[in-house]
Amino acid sequence: MARLLRLFPLLFALLLAPDAMARARGPVVLAAASLQESLTEAADAWAAKGHPKPVLSFAASSALARQVIAGAPADLFLSADEPWMDAAAKAGMLRAGTRATLLGNRLVLIAPAASRARLTIARGFPLARALGSGRLALADPGAVPAGKYAKAALAHLGVWSGVAGRVAPAENVRAALALVERGAAPFGVVYATDVRASTAVRIVGVFPASSHPPIRYPVAVLKASRHRDAGAFRAFLFSKRGRAIFARHGFSAS
C-alpha cells in the first residue's frame, strides 16, 4: 500500500510533463477546413527540416475568425476568403505587414460517386429539378466562405432562388462533402481541392470563375503570436517548396 502511495507524486509529475513538452511545440495555425491535407503535408515538410511541428486547427473560417477576434492564443490565421480576414484586421488582431494572399481555388458541383446524374452548369440550369426531394449540401451560406461562394455562384446563374429552401447547410465545407459522400444529399457544392481528398464523390461540373468572387486564401501572422517560428513558417508556405505542395493538392497560386 505504501509503495502504491509513493507512485502518486510520480503520476502527478507525469501529468504535468506535457506542459514541459509543449515548449517544444510549433506555432499554432488556425486554418480553413479545405486546407486539411495540404497544410498537414506542408507542416510535416517543415518539421522534417528540423523545426518543431506546427499545431494545426481546421474549422470553418467564420468560426476561426471568431476565435481570432476573441483573442485566441494562436500564431497564424489562414482564411478561405478575404472578408473574414478583413474582420480580423478590423478588430486589430493581425500583425502589421504580414497579410498576403497565398492560394486560389475553384468551385465545383459534386454528386455521390455512384450517382449517374448529368448537369451542365450554365445560366438557369435545372438544379432544383435534379435535386428532386433531396437537398443541396453546402457549407453554411450565411457565414462560411465555401457556402458564400456557392450562393454567389448559384445566384449569378439565376438558380439560387429555386434551391434556397432545399439546402442542407453544413458547419464547414468538409462536412458538406461528407453529406454527399454518405449519400445523404444528392448534390453538393465544394472546392475542387476537396474532391481530390475524397474517393466517394465525383464532379458533375465546375462553376465558371466569373460566377463568383475570386476564391482567395489570405494568410497573416496574429498580433497575439508568441512563437519565434511563426514568420518563418509563413515564409515557408510562400516558398517554392511550399507552393509545390499546395499545387499538388489542386490549389492555384492565388
Binding site: S62, A63, A65, R66, D140, A143, V167, A170, E171
Partner: peptide, 22 residues
C-alpha cells in the same frame, strides 16, 4: 439530422450556429 433551419435547427443548434459567427 444536421442543422437545417426550419426543420432541425432547434434552440440548442441555433445557439451553436450563432456562436460560430462573429
Amino acid at each position: 439530422v444536421s442543422n437545417i433551419p426550419g426543420e432541425t435547427r432547434t434552440l440548442p443548434l441555433a445557439i451553436y450556429s450563432a456562436l460560430q459567427v462573429p
